[in-house]
């Protein structure tokens, strides 16, 4: 059997606080990262995603079990050896100081350069390549303090890539980015994982995006158990719903997303087609209606015909000229 870049056996992670029993956040973890695979770590807030990432990187001692990086126990590796095998992007380390983008990315070459930190041709080539790979070439000569949070995050990811490690762990790198940038970043990372044969593990809150881009999901639940699998498989099996279970939201397996949990006050049938019908249904469910498929089931029925919403309720009929007018009338009439 070939040696896995990263493999854990009955790993137990958590905190040690002086004078107290260690607090376990997850245990019994048998995990592995495979070259070329882009893995997303999902889980509710405060469940210990960051702890797991720090433990896997060897920065925080595990409470039990073992972590092997390319066959070597992580606890027996020197800081430099670790830095050559694992790069980490942490939430709390957005760069500051009078550095330009290039110099920050160049920090990533530290494990490969001599004590002076002087950059050789190979180092410079790698830096240029990673800056282009994350689309941050134009940020190289700008001072870090002048960049936006999103641009800084890009520089930090380029910095981690410059470290030239097979394993890359990222703790919520998308937190500061707007949606298009997030999609872009996830795609970049996934492509890099495939093209370069990297193992990338990324923790995120963005369920939708993770479902669409990850090759594999790690679902960390509040009880400290972790399920792994293909995103679609986990969604079908109801594992995603179980991991994020809460009284406030409902998992919609057909949409692949969570919805605000409401006790529907009334049923409504919506007739029509296309985008207008979709957005009408969304507006109605937002204000508390349950949209049903069968016209017989509900007293309220709405027909959507090109910019006209025909409402019939217990024999009463009226028409609205816009979606917002419809919502206002429905809210006002208490049907």
């Amino acid at each position: 059997m070939s040696v896995k870049p990263l493999q854990t056996e009955s790993l137990r992670v958590g905190y040690k606080i002086k004078g107290q029993e260690p607090r376990t956040v997850a245990s019994g973890l048998d995990l592995e990262l495979v070259p070329g695979e882009f893995v997303c770590l999902l889980g509710p807030n405060g469940v210990g995603k960051s702890t797991l990432i720090r433990s896997l990187s060897g920065m925080q001692a595990a409470l039990g079990g073992s972590i092997h990086i390319s066959g070597t126990d992580v606890s027996s590796m020197s800081p430099k050896e670790k830095a050559r095998s694992v790069s980490v992007v942490l939430t709390d380390s957005l760069p500051v100081g009078m550095f330009d983008g290039y110099s920050v990315v160049a920090l990533g070459r530290h494990p490969h350069t001599s004590w002076t930190g002087g950059l050789g041709a190979e180092d410079k080539e790698r830096i240029s390549w990673v800056l282009e790979a994350v689309g941050a070439g134009h940020l190289a000569h700008r001072q870090i303090s002048e960049l936006s949070d999103g641009e800084r995050q890009k520089i930090m990811i380029a910095r981690a890539l410059a470290q030239e490690t097979q394993i890359m762990l990222l703790d919520e790198p998308t937190a500061f980015l707007d949606l298009p940038r997030r999609v872009e970043l996830m795609r970049t990372l996934r492509d890099l994982a495939r093209r370069e044969g990297l193992c990338i593990l990324l923790s995120t809150h963005d369920l939708d995006l993770a479902l669409r881009s990850a090759d594999k999901l790690w679902l960390l639940a509040s009880d400290g158990t972790l399920k792994t699998g293909m995103p679609e498989q986990l969604a079908l099996e109801g594992e995603i719903a179980a991991t994020f279970a809460s009284g406030e939201v409902d998992w919609d397996p057909e949409q692949g997303a969570f919805r605000m949990h409401r006790n529907a006050c009334a049923k409504v049938y919506v007739g029509g087609t296309g985008a207008e019908r979709v957005w009408t249904c969304r507006a109605l469910s937002r204000i508390g209606y349950e949209v049903v498929d069968n016209e017989e089931e509900s007293k309220l029925s709405i027909q959507v015909i090109e910019n006209c919403w025909r409402v019939s309720f217990e024999g009463e009929n009226f028409e609205c000229r816009s979606l917002s007018e419809l919502v206002e009338r429905l809210l006002g009439s208490n049907v």
Binding site: S57, M59, S78, P79, K80, E81, K82, A83, R84, V86, S87, V88, L90, D92, S93, P95, V96, G97, V104, L107, G108, H110, P111, Q163
Partner: peptide, 10 residues
Amino acid sequence: MGERFAESLG
């Protein structure tokens, strides 16, 4: 850039 960052760089 912070001690954790430095640690991750070896």
